[in-house]
Write a protein that binds this DNA or RNA. Structure first.
Lengths: 188, 188
DNA sequence: GACTTAAAGCAAGATGCTTTGCTTTAGTCG
DNA sequence: CGACTAAAGCAAAGCATCTTGCTTTAAGTC
């Protein structure tokens, strides 16, 4: 499932290929239809042999998961010291992630495939969703506050954002994202 | 987009084929992995030539949309006369639709494909989501009440249900669905 | 009952994703 | 530097979806 766990020969060419493939995925996801986001297309754009991608990642979902994991590692979540501000930041960042070109491609790729694979893929996707929230909630608790439970935040903030982005509901912007937090926490 | 709008020769064989294909889709969606739900597989199970399915419906999404439309026509939404009860019924029915075997397949099929097609498919999917709510809200307004706006119901009831079913969040059952309505309307 | 034609069946082929066996390249280690 | 080997490249074949031109069936109409 997790690609190249041992990473037995990470230097030089392997890292170069990995970077090129990641970049190609990002560009393709942003530029073309989701249906065009295939392993052969990614490989061609990356200047890499398709076989290499198949052997290293196996499936498109695994590749996307690998990419998301790295992005998460590159930009870890932080806390400002105020729950309300943290939640607003989280909501706005999540919305931006979802609405940027190709942003929903990752979600889509995880939703489509087999149940067996999907279970793990979606669990990972959900974990990434909640990782930022966990940091925020933990910081709040560390200050002695009693923040809403994680499930409540999923229902009231994350779920509406996903739903409205997936269904292209009009008016789903930063103001709306902030309003979700206000509805939950009360006016500032 | 909408298949067989004129329906120039609906009797006999065409209807038989349509029924057989619909049944095959339902059974396959319930029994196999979503990835196995392809037009050739449906055609074989229905005892129909794949070409027929391709020519009549064109894509799997169109076929699923056709099926959903007919199901909607078979079981139109009603109102009990009490908003709270109507919303609970709606939430429980929606959850049941989504969690039954293959229930999420329709949503999944609409989320995956090309943007161009997806726009219409999702618009239709959303319309079906909200059709039941519209009936309930209209009935409430007709009684002189001031029910929450549709968007609020989407955020607070429909979106959490979809989100939790898609991500297989544990504890997503009838009690939870009712609790969503209680959180919104207050205790009975 | 026979005519017309929409719709289903059939078969061959195009297309594109995926796999597999083998060869070549280039990191890593002594 | 030279041997070792993981990883990338290459080529050919496999496989499933989808398309297309034509034939056959049977629903609708007079």
């Amino acid at each position: 499932m997790s690609p190249e766990a041992p990473a037995r020969r990470p230097g030089g060419r392997s890292a170069r290929v990995r970077a090129a493939v990641h970049l190609a995925v990002t560009e393709l996801a942003a530029q073309t239809d989701p249906a065009q986001l295939t392993i052969p297309a990614v490989a061609e754009r990356a200047g890499v042999n398709p076989t290499t991608v198949y052997r290293r990642w196996g499936t498109l979902q695994a590749l996307l998961a690998d990419l998301a994991t790295q992005q998460e590692a590159d930009a870890p979540a932080t806390s400002s010291g105020d729950l309300r501000i943290d939640l607003e930041d989280y909501a706005i960042r999540t919305l931006a992630d979802l609405t940027r070109p190709g942003g929903i491609a990752f979600f889509r790729a995880e939703v489509s495939p087999d149940v067996g694979e999907r279970r793990d893929g979606l669990r990972e996707c959900l974990r990434r969703c909640t990782a930022g929230l966990d940091v925020v909630l933990e910081a709040s608790r560390a200050r002695g506050e009693a923040p809403p439970p994680l499930e409540c935040l999923l229902d009231r903030i994350v779920a509406p954002l996903y739903f409205r982005v997936v269904f292209s509901v009009p008016g789903t912007d930063g103001t709306y994202a902030r309003a979700l937090v206000t509805d939950l926490c009360g006016a500032p």
